[in-house]
Design a protein around this nucleic acid. Structure first.
Lengths: 180, 180
DNA sequence: CTTAGTGCAAAGCGTTTGCATGCGA
DNA sequence: TCGCATGCAAACGCTTTGCACTAAG
């Protein structure tokens, strides 16, 4: 069975997905409007568990024939962040990345960020998650955390190794020339 | 005793501070120039252990009568990040913050970030630091990490509590009016 | 009927870039 | 002398804002 909601076809179970329920509750509590745009954007975000850029999300919606203005996408994502449905990340000088909040400990993870190419990889590690999750600070009401481990990814390690070898070869050539 | 270097008065020991030595080594290795601007900016950054914004750093230098262009400050900080002398942080949609890299485990720390006002507090916690520092990932060459704990700072907790009390008072008033 | 939400275009702002000049090596 | 660094101003790109219009409650 399939129903048409907010301009997009979706399965019946999606109508009552945890995310939709949470958004509805939040909007009601804040006395805000339940617009089709908000649900369409939410649906799109929760349809994958990948990080995403605002611009890509917008393009994907347009590509599906669902027209929303970029400003609305920005405003809506901000709303989702405040509602605790989405989290913001920003690495180096790249545009902001977002991801839906991890659902329970099985989805919790931290990030490996490559200092060379900027790529981000999610890593699940129960021990780390629970250890950090148990931290308590007096006078500070913890809500969630982000752990970023920076370094060099395997791809860039190879790339840098090759570059280094090339440089050394050049250096040797120069030595021979200046000291013949 | 005090010597004049790079347009700024400084103590003799600063001339051979670990940061200066490290920068000199880096510049020599990369065959880059040791300009007074680079050392002046380094000095300013390492004169405190606080996080700072590029703009403030630039203003502070100007205020001291040391003129450097904003572009040079940007370029230089980027250089310092690549040299491993400075680290970049970015919270929410605030401009980037930087801090000199922690010198040894006694300076290592993580951050408490307020979701309401955006303020950042540094927290030292040996156990957390060493636990995370011992993480190893195959194919990924770890260089350093950042842990951000998000929540509500004490100041904002009080603020939000007051706002809530006000709202509830208003809500009660309305109830009385509609159900007399 | 009221006014929050949306769409569009323009503005804002941190950061980068292009180019002429200056200075370290 | 040679060419990297700097200074300045203009450009850039992500994000926000102002305003007229639309639609949720």
């Amino acid at each position: 069975m399939s129903i048409f909601v907010g301009g997009m076809a979706m399965k019946d179970d999606k109508l009552h997905s945890p995310a939709r329920v949470a958004l509805t509750a939040y909007l009601k509590a804040k006395k805000m409007r339940r617009t089709p745009e908000r649900y369409a954007i939410l649906e799109k975000i929760f349809s994958t568990d990948e990080h995403f850029y605002v611009d890509d999300l917008h393009k994907n919606l347009e590509a599906e024939g669902y027209h929303v203005s970029l400003s609305t996408v920005y405003a809506t994502i901000q709303l989702f962040v405040e509602a605790g449905l989405v989290r913001r990340h920003q690495f180096g000088n790249q545009p902001a990345q977002y991801e839906r909040v991890p659902q329970g400990i099985n989805e919790s993870h931290h990030h490996l960020v490559c200092n060379h190419c900027g790529r981000v990889r999610a890593v699940r590690d129960q021990e780390v998650i629970s250890m950090i999750g148990n931290l308590r600070y007096p006078t500070f009401k913890t809500e969630f955390f982000s752990l970023y481990v920076y370094g060099i990814c395997s791809r860039c390690q190879k790339k840098l190794k090759k570059e280094k070898e090339k440089e050394q070869a050049v250096a040797k050539t120069k030595k021979k020339k200046t000291k013949p």
